[in-house]
Nucleic acid binder design. Structure first.
Lengths: 348, 348
DNA sequence: TATTTTTACGCAACCGGTTGTGTTAAAGCG
DNA sequence: CGCTTTAACACAACCGGTTGCGTAAAAATA
């Protein structure tokens, strides 16, 4: 499309027989500009529908007033909620937000992080893809002193600000809740070992068993493959049943997996929660809709977004490098899927 | 954070005793640069970890190679899928994507559209908020000749490129399907009248009734308030039941509403689909998980995203203004929620 | 060998803002 | 009334790239 000639500061200056700097200053109400001049400039700006050129501004100020965000997938309720939290605070502080998805691909993550770097974002908020096991593309940020905050999924080898939830404690509580309900043979459908959160949740699972004197059984630690989707849960659950493994409860690394597990269990006419209780992680909206409603660990997603921005701004405004790590706790929301009928009998 | 001195094209030029332009051209493999010089430049660029400054590039080229996207909410599976489609094609064509949400707020939509304009996006793809009934903020785009594409939710008073699905036909098919299943007293839970899609779906609903000789009943056209969330559906459904209105089928303007309706029906011990059949619109993933699985109209969301980019690029590359309107059809996915037991008897 | 091409690169303007440093005339001061 | 302030604005450099045009030397051609 043929380009439209934007009216610039210079156009206004010429028409008013003043200098560029005068117009620039008039536009931002600088004190050293006469009232009459100011009015003339403002009027003309309105008349010509003047819009400042952010690009030029950014180039001269060396700041874009923009923060970049990279998430694995937008289509997860959790991530889109975090983003809402990020936007809320960012806009309030006069920052724009550029959102990118890595689509759970390491390669794509590298590309968008470089693009964002070249676009000179003032800071970056990231939750890494599940494939990512190299952090060189983020080290460049550190090298160039551009503020970085990780949330939820962090790079274990990077010492940067982060806000995560206490996966260990969350997992521990979930499993203990199942034990309290009289469950003894509790399986864990685990996430990709690449992600620290997977490992933390496994640890919480094991420690809860340990605390209650239940020996850890290798066969009950189920690998869901590389995916975190419903399908992976379904397949893994069927495989488990086919292998003759029959737990009395399942703690899944995330809700989609839990949902997949539940559909498979129902298909196999296994009663939830009586025969097998289920607990998920994340509390996606779907958890309340499935039958029976799924117990899950609620993560304060919106707050995580806000805190991420807060930590980022702290870095942006700090004269020296800053590293802050926040840990929030996930709250166990008990619904029917884990409400064993023996619950009351076994409660301590 | 104290700013890190980025190495620029000029730094490299000085160290090599060549001019800026030579370095610039060497970096992009221009033919008029000697092989030795090229290599020297590339080597030094790598050594200093040079990253081109996109801001400067954009300023001089008057093109940011960026397309803006505004959606009402990221947390809807439909929208995030459209975005994936947009990103896919955009990246392939060398464009970056900036995603913003209006949060279904007119005010926020105006702000982000202005921000995007100042950021000099090369084009904008929009699905408007449900509050929006003024299009001045988009007219500025037209005025400045920056390409615009609407998808799904369009501004009725703007003559611009758009890609929408055939809401009328979709609704018609859904309702006819219910009629074929023997349903006669079919209610429609409608969307906000601000949105054209709501009106189209109402029209399809009415015409399907008409075709099959069923008189339209005002009382069966239910207003869900301004929201499109599950809660709105629940409330409206309960209100309907409380008013003594008892249809034998419900066609909901979207899946969340349908889900809300279903939960209320189930709470009232009404059997789905035997007593009341339900059909939604959008085919969110949740539709397959709820019990019984929800019949819905599948929108080719990913494709809608791709086509939006295609239409946008057509404009960007066209010497003259261009307006193309694409209409895709939604496919009815029949699941249990609308599979009336009398289906076979009544089929024509 | 004289002349034309080609190769390889430099110069400087330009994109649209911001900002430190003048400069001039009016106002304030003792 | 002479001198210092202050108000109001102009100049020009700068941010980091791109690009049209000019030019000198080397290569090709006549």
């Amino acid at each position: 499309m043929k380009k439209y000639k934007e009216t610039t500061i210079l156009d206004i200056a010429r028409e008013l027989n003043v200098s560029k700097s005068t117009v620039s200053r008039a536009l931002k109400n600088h004190h050293s500009i006469g009232a009459a001049t100011k009015k003339a400039v403002l009027d003309l700006a309105k008349k010509y529908n003047y819009h400042p050129n952010n690009i030029a501004y950014s180039l001269s100020k060396k700041s874009t007033k923009t923060i970049g965000v990279i998430v694995p997938l937008l289509s997860h309720y959790y991530f889109s909620t975090v983003i809402s939290g990020i936007e809320e605070l960012a806009y309030k502080e006069g920052y724009k937000v550029i959102i990118c998805q890595s689509a759970e691909s390491y390669e794509r993550e590298v590309i968008v992080s470089q693009t964002l770097l070249s676009s000179k974002v003032d800071g970056l908020i990231v939750s890494i893809s599940r494939e990512t096991n190299n952090s060189d593309h983020f080290k460049v940020y550190q090298q160039k002193n551009v503020p970085l905050v990780f949330f939820d999924r962090v790079c274990p080898d990077l010492d940067v600000s982060s806000v995560v939830i206490d996966d260990y404690q969350g997992a521990f509580n979930a499993v203990e809740h199942l034990i309290m309900g009289g469950k003894r043979k509790i399986a864990h459908f685990a996430g990709p070992p690449m992600l620290k959160i997977s490992l933390e949740r496994i640890k919480g699972y094991k420690d809860a068993l340990l605390k209650h004197g239940i020996p850890f059984d290798e066969n009950l630690l189920i690998d869901c493959g590389s995916g975190l989707e419903q399908e992976n849960g379904s397949i893994a659950a069927q495989a488990m049943l086919d292998a003759g493994i029959r737990p009395d409860a399942i703690f899944a690394v995330c809700d989609p997996i839990a949902i997949g597990v539940m559909t498979t269990l129902k298909k196999n006419k296994i009663k939830i929660p009586d025969e097998i209780g289920v607990v998920g992680f994340c509390d996606e909206p779907i958890a309340t809709v499935i039958e029976p409603p799924l117990s899950s660990l609620v993560q304060p997603a919106f707050k995580i977004g806000e805190i991420s921005v807060e930590l980022l701004l702290n870095q942006i405004n700090s004269p020296i490098p800053l590293v802050e790590k926040k840990v929030l706790s996930a709250e166990l929301k008990i619904r029917e899927s884990s409400l064993s009928s023996v619950l009351n009998d076994n409660r301590i």
